[in-house]
C-alpha cells in the first residue's frame, strides 16, 4: 500500500493591504509612520490600542474617509481613498457616533442602504431588528442612543458587505445588548467576510474575535491569530508566576502571567486573556506577528 503525504500551504486572500502607511492630521504629530499590515478575509479582527493610538484613524483610512500622507491602503488591489463603487458596495463602516435623521422611520432609513447595497438582505435585517427589539415603523426620534446604535449595527450586518468596519460598536450599549451583539456577530459572518472591530473595551470582544491587532505609538505592536497565540503561549494565573514568564501582572489571587510554550509541547492554557495580552504588549513584553499561514493536509 502506497501512502503519500503532502503538505499544502494555503495563504488566505488578503482583503486589506496597508503598505508603508504614514498619516498625520494637519499640524499634528504623526499617528503612524511606515506602517505595514495585511488583513485576510474570513476573520473577525479586534483592533486594540490606548486612547489616541490611532485606531479610529486607521479604521477611517481603511474605509476611504482619509487619505494617506504617504504609502497606500488598498482593498483587493484598489486604493480605498478612491472610494470606487465596487469598494463602497463591499464595505460598510459603522462609526462610533451614529447620527440618524430623527424624523425618519426605521424602515425609511434602512431603505437607503437597501437601495444602494446590491447584497442587502432584508430578511436578515428584520431578524436582527427583532433580536435587538426595534420596531420597523418606529421613528428614530423614539429610539435611545443605544437603540440607534443597534439599528446601525443591524444595517451594517445586513448589507452583505465583505468588509465590515465597526468603530467602538459596544459603546453606549447596555449589558444585555452587548451579549446580543456578541451572539449576533458570532452567528452572522460569512466565510468571505472580514470584520474589524476597534475597541478599548477588551472584555466586550473576548470569545468573539479570532485575530488581534494592537496599535501603540503609531506602530502595529502585535498582529496575531488567537489560535496561534494559544499554540505558542500559556495564559494562566496562580499564587506565583513562573520564572520564565514573559509578562506578569498582580492579581487578587496572586499573579496572572504569560509564559511561552516550551518547544514541542502543547499545554492548553485556555483562550488568551485579551486584557492580559494587551497589557503585555503595551508594556513592551510581547510583540510581533503570530499568524497561522499554513494548513496541513495529508492523504
Amino acid at each position: 500500500m502506497l501512502v503519500s503525504y503532502y503538505t499544502m500551504t494555503v495563504k488566505q486572500r488578503d482583503m486589506i493591504s496597508v503598505k508603508k502607511l504614514s498619516f498625520s492630521y494637519p499640524k499634528k504629530p504623526w499617528l503612524c509612520e511606515e506602517m505595514d499590515l495585511e488583513l485576510s478575509e474570513g476573520k473577525i479582527i479586534g483592533l486594540l490600542g490606548l486612547n489616541g493610538a490611532g485606531k479610529s484613524t486607521l479604521m477611517r483610512l481603511m474605509a476611504g474617509l482619509l487619505k494617506p500622507v504617504s504609502g497606500e491602503v488598498s482593498f483587493e488591489g484598489g486604493a480605498t481613498f478612491d472610494r470606487s463603487i465596487p469598494f463602497l458596495n463591499q464595505m460598510i463602516f459603522v462609526p462610533e457616533k451614529v447620527s440618524v435623521p430623527e424624523f425618519l422611520k426605521v424602515k425609511e432609513y434602512s431603505s437607503v442602504y437597501q437601495d444602494f447595497y446590491s447584497g442587502f438582505d432584508l430578511d436578515r435585517f428584520e431578524k436582527l431588528l427583532s433580536e435587538f427589539q426595534i420596531i420597523g415603523n418606529q421613528r428614530v426620534s423614539n429610539l435611545s442612543y443605544g437603540q440607534q446604535k443597534k439599528l446601525q449595527i443591524a444595517i451594517g450586518l445586513s448589507t452583505g458587505a465583505k468588509l465590515l468596519l465597526f468603530d467602538e460598536p459596544t459603546n453606549g450599549l447596555d449589558i444585555p445588548s452587548k451579549s446580543t451583539f456578541r451572539r449576533v456577530l458570532s452567528g452572522s459572518l460569512q466565510e468571505d467576510q472580514t470584520m474589524v472591530i476597534s475597541t478599548h473595551q477588551v472584555k466586550d470582544i473576548e470569545n468573539l474575535v479570532d485575530q488581534i491587532i494592537v496599535l501603540d505609538e503609531g506602530k502595529v505592536k502585535l498582529h496575531a491569530d488567537l489560535e496561534e497565540l494559544e499554540n505558542q503561549f500559556v495564559f494562566s494565573q496562580g499564587p506565583q508566576a513562573p520564572d520564565q514568564a514573559v509578562f506578569v501582572e498582580s492579581h487578587l489571587l496572586g499573579a496572572q502571567y504569560i509564559v511561552k510554550q516550551p518547544y514541542g509541547e502543547r499545554n492548553s492554557g485556555g483562550s488568551p486573556d485579551l486584557e492580559l495580552l494587551f497589557n503585555a504588549v503595551i508594556a513592551g513584553k510581547l510583540a510581533g506577528e503570530f499568524l497561522s499561514t499554513q494548513n496541513q493536509a495529508t492523504s
Binding site: 474617509l65 472610494r83 470606487s84 463603487i85 463602497l88 463602516f93 447620527s99 444602494f116
Partner: peptide, 16 residues
C-alpha cells in the same frame, strides 16, 4: 455639513 452625515454620504455606493 456635519461629520456624521458626511461619512454616510461619502460612503454611499455611488461614484463622485
Amino acid at each position: 455639513v456635519t461629520k456624521a452625515s458626511s461619512e454616510r454620504y461619502l460612503l454611499l455606493p455611488a461614484s463622485h
